[in-house]
Simulated assay, not measured.
Amino acid sequence: MASISILELKPGIKLLKDVHTPLGGLLLQKGTVLLPRDLDILRAFMVQYVEVDTGEADAKNGSKPAAARKSQLNDSTSNEQITTSKISNLQEEYDKLILLVKSAYQSVIAADLPIYELRNQLESVIAHIKDYNPLTFTPKSMNEYDYIFHNAVLCALSSYLLSKWSGLQQKDWMQAAFAGLFHDIGNVKVDPAILFKPQPLAIAEVEEMRRHTTYGYQILKNTTAINEGVRLAALQHHEKVDGTGYPLRLEGSKIHVYAKIVGITDIFHAMTLNRIYRKAQSPYLVLEQIHSEAFGKLDPTLVQVFIQKSTEFHNGTVVRLSNDQAGEIVFTDRSNPTRPMVSVNGEIVNLVQQRHLYIDEVISLN
């Protein structure tokens, strides 16, 4: 073991101690085999010395690192194939649920919800929840008129995760997913001419649109296998913790936790999906807007959990920036999770400092 100046470091050398930022954040973990981008990170943070394994003599002549890099490349290819297969399985079950939700929504006025069929298929999707991330999952095909169904399923998955991430009991996770799945079911009673109107709504049309919350509660009132919290989420998901929401202008303590969860996931997916009147926005920008909404409007603790957990990507995640350049995430500061450092063509782009740039799309995970 030896302390070596970063001026002498070469790719392939293994770290024997964690490397931290000047403020104490973990920069590189013990055991990391340094890659060229890691050297860029160390220089960007002006790290002077690191503890490395001097026993790796081959690291200096390049033979062992080359073999290690070949192995790493093979592993990376294999992992990418596995990931693609997992996403395909998730997408397949997702598409089945979309069709079932579409059928259920279209017939709910004349017939009861097929709750057990919906639950079984929802469970089939949730079986692949480890492969789902709100920021990276994109429906394979979607037209704007099917927005309501995709929003329902995506909110179900994200609400399931947020209820789990926030420490609710396991019995709440599936009910929170139901809350996401049915939160906008009242829209089936709203005039389609209003629901799909591409222009701004008139005052009377806004009032009719807002009635979807009470319509939803009425539709779910006699549905079995869901609890009252699911019905209240349909009624309350547009309430705000400061009492400025609708339909009842409830304040924070009177809003059901499922409604608070769905209130966050609904805003996120509504803004990151294509709509009749608006194109999808960058999920990272939407998270920043949700963060600003947290002050007085949304539950701040739930917002923080949602942002922190959904942005927990490993270094090496490939992203596209708003200037259309692609790069790899190399470091994420927990205090600015939507604005990591990105390596672009060998240069470190610090999105905290360069506020005019933002992540437009996650291209691939590490």
Rank of each mutant, 00 (worst) to 15 (best):
E239V: 02
H237S: 04
F137S: 02
L97R: 09
T83M: 06
L302A: 10
K60W: 12
D53Y: 02
Q106S: 15
H269E: 15
E205P: 07
S322K: 11
I115L: 15
Y116L: 14
T214P: 01
P337M: 01
L26V: 13
H150K: 12
F268M: 02
L162W: 12
A127C: 05
T332H: 07
K14H: 00
I148F: 08
S364M: 10
W173G: 01
Q169I: 08
L97C: 02
Q72K: 14
P200Q: 03
L118Q: 12
D58N: 09
L201M: 11
Q81H: 09
I98H: 00
D146I: 00
A59M: 08
I87N: 08
A152R: 03
W165D: 12
L97A: 06
L287T: 07
P337G: 01
P283A: 01
I6G: 01
N133E: 07
E228C: 01
T83P: 05
V330A: 05
K102G: 04
L232W: 07
E347F: 08
L113F: 15
K70D: 11
H238L: 12
A202I: 01
Q169L: 05
D242E: 11
E251N: 13
D95I: 04
A67E: 14
Y246A: 10
K164I: 01
M271T: 02
Q48C: 03
E93P: 00
S85C: 04
S310D: 08
K171H: 13
N323S: 05
D53V: 03
L35I: 04
V286A: 06
C155K: 04
I82K: 14
L157K: 05
E239P: 03
I307F: 13
D38W: 03
L357A: 08
K70G: 03
V108Q: 02
P65S: 06
I194V: 15
H183F: 06
D18Q: 08
T317G: 02
S292Y: 00
P340G: 04
G25K: 14
H128C: 07
Q308E: 15
T138L: 04
F45C: 02
L73S: 12
I13R: 10
R320C: 08
L135F: 07
L99A: 11
Q72M: 13
L16C: 06
I307T: 14
K60S: 07
M271C: 01
A127P: 08
Q170T: 05
Q169D: 11
Y116G: 02
S63H: 09
R210G: 14
F137E: 00
N345G: 09
I267V: 09
E251P: 01
L135M: 12
Q218F: 07
P300M: 00
